[in-house]
Amino acid sequence: MGKEVLNLLKLEAALDLRQRAAWGGMLLYVVSAVYVCHLAMKDALAGTAWNALFWIILLFAAFNALARSFQREDQGRQLYLYTMVHPRSVVLARALYNALTMAVLSLLSLLFYALFLGDEPLSRADLLQFVLAVVLGGIGFAAVLTLISAIAARAGNGIGLMAILGFPVILPMLLAVMRASQLALQGAPWSDAGLLFLALAALDVVTITLAWLLFPYLWRD
């Protein structure tokens, strides 16, 4: 099982790197969103609003990036893949790969965001905590949206359905992670924030486990 997942992960990476345009697209999406915000707000942002806007941009970037997750491959290759390996390995590999993608994308977004909208709120923050919140949040978005993207793809309906299905289930994750990053921005001690991070990590694990449990039913036709 573990080896199968690892091989699939390698396959995912190889396929993804071949599609460099897709990565470019994701990055361009984030940069455009950040730049639009910069034009709209200039540098009138502080504290809470800065934090909220960052997560909203990241939320939409996640939807945009992960919508492709189960839609990029054609039916034939998919069928071939699923006859060769267990569906649970597929979803685990896909979720892990998406989590990795989102972690990288979140950090890059943070970079652009701080560049264009100012890093003033970060000056008082516990930077390690904030980065951890960003990474855990990105992984959480990926965990939730992997299964949602698979459902939307199976329903034969694209990004519209994914947004409708994904938004209410991602809200818990979004609120928790916004709270965590807000605490980090205030420079809260680890004794306050630690439990929240633990809860976030637990939420990520539970979500991936659920996807792992439910995915075989999605595939059975």
């Binding site: 939730v144 299964l147 289930v169 818990p172 439910l214």
Partner: peptide
């Protein structure tokens, strides 16, 4: 599938 996933979350 969606019901089970969403209910737990």
């Amino acid at each position: 599938i969606y019901n089970v996933f969403a209910y737990v979350l």
